[in-house]
Write a protein that binds this DNA or RNA. Sequence first.
DNA 1: TAAAATGTTGGGTA
DNA 2: ATACCCAACATTTT
Length: 266
Amino acid sequence: MPELPEVETIVRKLRPQLLDRIVQEADLRWSRTLAFPSAKKFRGLIKGQEIREVTRRAKFFILRLSDLSLLIHLRMSGDLFIKDSKIGPEKHDRLILKLSGNNSLIFNDTRKFGRVWLTANPEEVLGRLGPEPLSRSFTSKWLHTALHGKQRQLKPLLLDQTFLAGLGNIYADEALHIAKLHPLAASDSITAREAEALHAAVRKVLKEGIRRNGASIDWVYRGGEFQNYFRVYDREGKPCPTCGTSIQRITVGQRGTHFCPTCQMR
DNA sequence: TAAAATGTTGGGTA
DNA sequence: ATACCCAACATTTT
């Protein structure tokens, strides 16, 4: 599933192919993919826009254009790639932007959960996100204070994008294992030392994911290698890489949650 | 065969 | 504030 490292991998791959291109035409093939504005306005507004910057905020892919910003959230099964404009649409292509230079940017999304916004004010979409975990605003001191400002279980809190932006189910489980913290631990019971460990673990696992070009699981193939280095995620019954104890799988906040009962004690 | 599980976000209710 | 359920979906597994 596209989490922060997967989106960062896509940004890095596409940036050189997108910069300075002009959007010539939009082919919206599944109308509900577009969150804002209307399809008619979208087609008119995006035509002729030049791509000035290709970046990311949490799991959002951001194209800064001449006058507007195009935001794309891949959700569960979205993927972005460049194809020769002569090649016809594939089965799950939801939006195709025909660019100058005979290339097209394809938003392919099997499960149709992904969304696209075209707006002059990206903050209207991004404004409620928590801190960016790889930025300097994310410190262990902030994390310790913020954890004590909530009374929630650690795992669902780490997945809450308004608390901290960018972690999904895989990286949350991996970060908690590295930090040796139980997914059900109460956020306001975390010590300064534990918060420090969690802060370091989040940054470590995200950087590791980026270094491995993200993770691919099941039929949602993204081309990364991080799936070969999971410590706990999708490893129920397999040995903990640290102590050998069998990895346990429980459900927390309706999400599959994997942890080592020996390393991650409550 | 049909139902359950999967995972991200947003909306609703309590 | 937070816990809970459901909805948006396609695909695989039970």
